[in-house]
């Protein structure tokens, strides 16, 4: 049973048509990885799913909520957002709050969870991501990797239907990338529905249940990682993956 169903989603910035009618289905517990070149529209698609960008038209269903994107109301947008959580490329931690408060914020303010309960939740998710001893640290006192851990913990604590990851490792140094990818693997592999936009092909190959390749605002190819990454059928996909393929099978070329 699919938890997300998007049909004919379109989005334009002024004259530029960024998404040209996207259909997307995500099953419960499925991990979907969206790949594609910069400017292909993959991040915009992700942001349309929690209305950080407002799509122009199309229909969208998310776990019992459904709407016509052209006529979506503010109330509906908030309702949709309460069922999603996002992990940002630049972490997006609330700079005026401690690590613990960052996590409590969405629970206490948006979901009306009692403060005490939210504090407990925050403590336990921070421990889960390995920051149990940094509850009172403020974002500027944390390294990039640690900030992203808090970002992931914040998304987890909200217990959403789906977690959206927007290039979660693009701002990190190479050493930290694997650390964060391991953490993401841990948190999503226990049955969480997740949609990731990433340039980490190895990771996509390992973790994804489904890989979607977007180019120029359209889904060019989708399927299992083995299909899309291992044996792409479309020329555009092959071109995009050329470098990755080289890395994957060096023995053929040596």
């Amino acid at each position: 049973m699919s938890v997300i169903e998007v049909r004919r989603l379109k989005k334009a910035f002024k004259q530029h048509q960024v998404l040209k009618g996207i259909d997307l289905d995500v099953d419960e517990g499925e991990i979907v990885v969206i790949i594609g070149a910069s400017g292909s529209g993959k991040t915009t698609l992700l942001r349309c799913l929690n209305f950080l960008e407002k799509a122009d038209e199309g229909s969208y269903r998310l776990d019992g909520l459904s709407t016509d994107l052209k006529h979506v109301t503010k109330k509906q947008i908030t309702a949709f957002r309460l069922k999603t959580a996002m992990v940002f490329q630049t972490y997006g931690l609330f700079l005026n709050k401690t690590a613990q408060e960052n996590i409590m914020e969405g629970l206490v303010v948006a979901r009306k969870v009692p403060k005490k309960e939210a504090a407990e939740t925050a403590k336990s998710v921070l421990t889960q991501v390995g920051l149990g001893d940094r509850l009172n640290a403020r974002p500027y006192q944390l390294s990039g990797g640690e900030q992203q851990r808090v970002g992931i913990a914040r998304a987890l604590a909200l217990n959403p239907e789906v977690i959206l990851f927007d290039e979660p490792t693009s701002a990190l140094d190479p050493e930290k990338v694997n650390e964060i990818l391991d953490l993401i693997r841990d948190v999503v592999s226990c049955g969480k529905t997740a949609i990731l936009v990433t340039h980490e092909m190895e990771f996509a190959y390992d973790v994804a249940d489904k890989v979607i390749f977007i180019d120029n605002g359209e889904i060019v190819e989708q399927g299992t990682p083995q299909q899309v990454l291992g044996d792409p059928q479309q020329e555009r996909t092959q071109q995009f993956l050329a470098r990755f393929m080289l890395g994957k099978q060096p023995e053929y070329f040596l």
Binding site: R81, T84, E105, V109
Partner: peptide, 25 residues
């Protein structure tokens, strides 16, 4: 901009985001 977006992403309304995240900064 990321601060606004982060606040919306955790489900806050515009006014909640303003009071709890934006104005304090």
């Amino acid at each position: 901009k990321c601060q606004y977006e982060a606040a919306y992403s955790v489900g806050e309304t515009r006014i909640q985001a303003l009071i709890h995240v934006i104005l304090p900064q």
